[in-house]
Every structure is written in structure tokens, then in C-alpha cells.
């Protein structure tokens, strides 16, 4: 506790000095006091991730990814300390309904878009097809985790339309 108080004091002193980093129009989110003082908020846990993605609709079935067991709570891994200024990681393994499912990439992309929109910037998101569940695992995995391809896909109106439809059942 003593150590923590010293840290708090240092942080408080730093707060009183003008921050140097953002010299221009700092339109960053206004941090709440607790976060500024280095007290973590509640870390995000696998259940919260599951709740974010389980209600995504399957692109070809009238069911959700949760109902189809494409996403499962036990296949979600989260590393998060809750600090806004530290990196965190989420890893989601998906199980496509059939091994040659050509829509695996689309499903993975839908999950990624959902998580990128819902999670704070500190999260690095990795999406894998579960081992043995897909014929071209490596190819799908590489594509789903290529930042540039994902960014370009998100500028494709047609694709974005399909994804919006998949995400429309999310709360």
C-alpha cells in the first residue's frame, strides 16, 4: 500500500504538469480520474467477448454463431489487466460448421469487425479457425489476421453490407 501511495502521488504530481504529448487539438477521450491515477477498470473477460459475438448471424443459416457453436466460450482467450494505457489481447478460435465452409473467412471478418468496433483501442484481436476444422486453415488464418487486407475489406461496400446484416442481430 505504501508503494502504491507513492505511485499515486507521483501520478498526481504529473497530472499537475501540463501534458507534453498531445500538443495539437487533443480530441482524445476525456479520461476519468480513476484511470488517470492508474487504477484499472474492470478487465474484460471471455464471457463479455462471447456476449459481443454470439449474436452475430450466420451468413447462410437463420441462426446465430452462438447457436451454431461456431463461437464457443471455451475457445475465447483474453489477456487484459483493465488498464486503459496498456495493451490487451483477445484470441477467438472459431469452428466453422463444415470443413470446406467457404464462408469461414466472412464469418471471421464479421467477428473481427464486431470486436474492433466494440472493444477499446488497447485490444489486439487474433482470430483463428480451430485446428482441424477447416481444409485451408493457414490460408484463412493468415487472411483474417492481415491488418491491411481487413482494412481494405472494410472499405468494400458490398462486403460491408453483408457484414452489417450479420451484425444487425447484435445487441
Amino acid at each position: 500500500p505504501v508503494l502504491q501511495n507513492v505511485e499515486l502521488l507521483t501520478k498526481l504530481l504529473q497530472l499537475n504538469q501540463a501534458p507534453e504529448l498531445t500538443t495539437d487539438e487533443s480530441d482524445e477521450d476525456t479520461d476519468d480520474m480513476a484511470d488517470e491515477l492508474g487504477v484499472p477498470a474492470d478487465p474484460i473477460d471471455p464471457q463479455e467477448i462471447y456476449d459481443l459475438i454470439a449474436h452475430i448471424s450466420d451468413p447462410e443459416h437463420p441462426l446465430t454463431l452462438g447457436q451454431l457453436a461456431v463461437v464457443n466460450l471455451k475457445d475465447i482467450e483474453v489477456h487484459d489487466e483493465g488498464y486503459k494505457d496498456r495493451m490487451a489481447e483477445v484470441i477467438v478460435k472459431i469452428t466453422p460448421t463444415i470443413t470446406h465452409c467457404s464462408l469461414a473467412t466472412l464469418i471471421g471478418l464479421g467477428i473481427r469487425v464486431r470486436l474492433e468496433r466494440a472493444l477499446p483501442a488497447r485490444f489486439r484481436i487474433t482470430i483463428f479457425v480451430k485446428e482441424g476444422s477447416h481444409q485451408s486453415e493457414n490460408q484463412v488464418n493468415k487472411q483474417l489476421n492481415d491488418k491491411e487486407r481487413v482494412a481494405a475489406a472494410c472499405e468494400n461496400d458490398q462486403l460491408l453490407g453483408v457484414i452489417s446484416k450479420m451484425l444487425s442481430t447484435c445487441k
Binding site: 498531445t22 500538443t23 487539438e25
Partner: peptide, 12 residues
């Protein structure tokens, strides 16, 4: 050492 930080873009 950070010399200057410029917010120039609305995205990446």
C-alpha cells in the same frame, strides 16, 4: 525523445 506530436488524420 518526442519532439512533436501532430494529430493530422481522422483515421489510421
Amino acid at each position: 525523445q518526442l519532439a512533436k506530436s501532430l494529430k493530422l488524420h481522422r483515421d489510421k
